[in-house]
Amino acid sequence: MAKNEKKNDISEMSFEEAIRELTDIVGKIEQGKIPLQDSLAQYEKGMALIKHCRGILQKAEKRIEKISKEEQAE
């Protein structure tokens, strides 16, 4: 259900999207006005986003690819 969908979403997020969502969640929880049950879900999502971001940062291939003038699948 929604939980699995969420996870898929996160894994497809770019670093920028993940950070944006993360700051959003941190802000919402800081305001403390969301119901307890929701805050747990948001907390869990926030942690998943942090994990995703760290995952992206660890993926350093340091490979330089070449683009050539001719139309070509890169």
Partner: peptide
């Protein structure tokens, strides 16, 4: 962010 989230969820 991580410690902020944790602190705030505990507050919640």
């Amino acid at each position: 962010y991580e410690s902020g989230l944790y602190k705030n969820i505990v507050l919640c």
